[in-house]
Amino acid sequence: MNDSAEQAHTADRLWREHRREPFPDSLRHGAFDGTDVWLLEWGMAGSLVRRLDHGGPLDAEDSALLRTGIDGLDRVIPGMGDGAAADYCRRLRRIAALAVGGTPAD
């Protein structure tokens, strides 16, 4: 399996896992560093559904939205006191990075 196919397979697997997990309660209310994580995830999920669930290509708008989401998650994850919420966001970040063809940070 080449790197691109392996990344796609990993993104698909992680996306299925992510969708089964409940959104962490600690992220439902309030903002981290001025960022509402639920809104960030909501925007990213639309692009990920188009790419991973429907097999469509990422257009420039989806790619930009995911990159913005990655940047937002990079800002807020370090300040999260809830380890489960941080793990949830790290997985979302990794999926987005795989979807845009970047290097996922763990």
Rank of each mutant, 00 (worst) to 15 (best):
P57S: 14
T35E: 10
A99I: 01
E6R: 15
G83K: 13
R20W: 09
H9C: 14
L39Q: 14
D74F: 01
N2Q: 11
L52N: 04
R51T: 02
W38T: 00
G30R: 06
G72E: 09
L14D: 13
R16V: 13
E61H: 13
Y88G: 03
D62E: 08
G83T: 13
R90E: 08
T35I: 15
P78N: 03
P24F: 00
V37F: 06
A8Q: 14
D82N: 07
H54P: 00
R67D: 09
L48C: 02
P78T: 02
F23S: 07
S47F: 00
G83A: 15
R75K: 12
A8D: 11
R16E: 13
A45H: 10
G83W: 10
G43T: 02
G83L: 10
A8C: 04
A11I: 03
T103H: 15
E6C: 14
S4Q: 15
A64Q: 12
R13T: 14
L92D: 07
S47G: 08
R51D: 08
R20H: 14
D59W: 01
G34I: 03
G34M: 02
P57H: 11
L40F: 05
D74A: 08
C89H: 02
R50H: 15
R50S: 13
G55C: 07
F32K: 11
A96K: 01
S47N: 06
A45W: 00
T35A: 08
D53H: 06
V76C: 07
P78V: 02
E41Q: 12
W38Q: 09
P104N: 10
R51L: 03
D87W: 03
C89P: 01
A8K: 13
A31T: 15
A99V: 02
D71A: 15
M80E: 03
G56W: 02
V76R: 07
F32T: 14
D87I: 01
D25H: 05
R16Y: 07
R90K: 12
M44I: 05
A8N: 11
G83H: 12
A97L: 07
P24Y: 04
R13Y: 14
H9T: 15
E17R: 14
D87H: 08
T68H: 12
P22E: 10
L14T: 06
R50W: 12
D25S: 09
G69P: 04
L52Y: 05
G69A: 04
R16W: 05
D12C: 13
G79H: 12
G102E: 14
S47R: 03
V100S: 01
A86N: 06
S47Q: 06
G43K: 10
V76E: 05
D33E: 12
G79C: 01
D62I: 02
I95H: 02
S4R: 15
A31Q: 15
G56P: 00
R94C: 08
